[in-house]
Nucleic acid binder design. Structure first.
Lengths: 153, 153
DNA sequence: CACGCTTGATTGAATATTCAACAAAATTCC
DNA sequence: GGAATTTTGTTGAATATTCAATCAAGCGTG
């Protein structure tokens, strides 16, 4: 049996601060987006990724991957977005199993409006309240974390 | 109408890295805790907070507050933890509306085991993959963010 | 004291997410 | 070529979370 390696006091404090802060921030961003535009962060993320893809469309599997969602979850969520007319599904010629999720014109217009408010909130509660150097540190750190998580799978 | 203030390229990249990394990390921690001990992070957090409270118990409202959960959610979650025998509810003498959530002996023992594995995972995917200075930066930043979110309510 | 107002906590229905099972098409391998 | 396997995507049931309504108790004020 191996001895558990606990965090030291400072590490513990920083880790806890992160857990609490990130939960509260996520909660705020969700509420903000939901109250102003009826979207969750997960839905917003899907729209953003589609908007940036060539022809504003992506295969479901790839979209699930870059939006960090399970395929099942994406399937359900895209169905909801489809009902709202923001996304459309069309099947992919090359691979007959494949399905493209495509951002509609309405979806793009809707996203453009939502993005303005969302970015303002991200500024107000994230970018503008932290030191620029600390923001860089966060960027570095979470890139490394994402890599590590990806490596483990 | 005010001009939207977009993020510059670097801010954008760092913000996105954070969103992606934090979602992936949260997902991994949840899966890890769930597969090894049948707990979600939210449930784990509740147990931790109770374990640190005097007499290992807290009023529901206070627990909801420090665990960053809605009261409704806490109510449901505590019911589940109660079914598992990890937490008990007892009513508070002073304020007849009040309810204490208390960590049981079983709950404490259970948490002790779970914590060993959880901390190891936090090390493997968070603490040990980032620069110590960056960890400090994260601590500072998310403390400021949590304050800002709290201020806004 | 009694009226309105706030706080503490729970409930059930609506909504969202996970999980396991499935079907269909593509790929691998002999 | 064709059986076995993998990949893609969806589905429905089980589970969890949100949301709005409710109830009971405390508090403040005229």
């Amino acid at each position: 049996m191996t001895e558990p390696r606990w965090l030291d006091a400072v590490q513990q404090r920083d880790w806890r601060a992160y857990v609490e802060g990130s939960v509260r921030l996520a909660d705020l961003l969700d509420r903000d987006l939901k109250s102003k535009h009826g979207l969750t962060m997960a839905e917003y993320e899907i729209l953003v990724r589609l908007s940036e893809a060539p022809e504003r469309r992506l295969r479901m599997a790839e979209l699930a991957d870059i939006a960090s969602q399970s395929r099942s979850r994406l399937s359900h969520t895209v169905s909801r977005l489809e009902c709202k007319g923001l996304v459309a599904r069309n099947n992919c010629g090359a691979d007959k199993r494949g399905v493209f999720a495509e951002l509609t014109e309405d979806g793009f217009a809707f996203l453009s409006k939502a993005a303005v408010d969302h970015v303002a909130t991200v500024r107000d509660f994230f970018v503008d309240v932290i030191d620029p150097d600390d923001l860089r540190a966060i960027g570095r750190a979470f890139t490394a974390i994402a890599d590590q998580v990806a490596k483990a799978r």
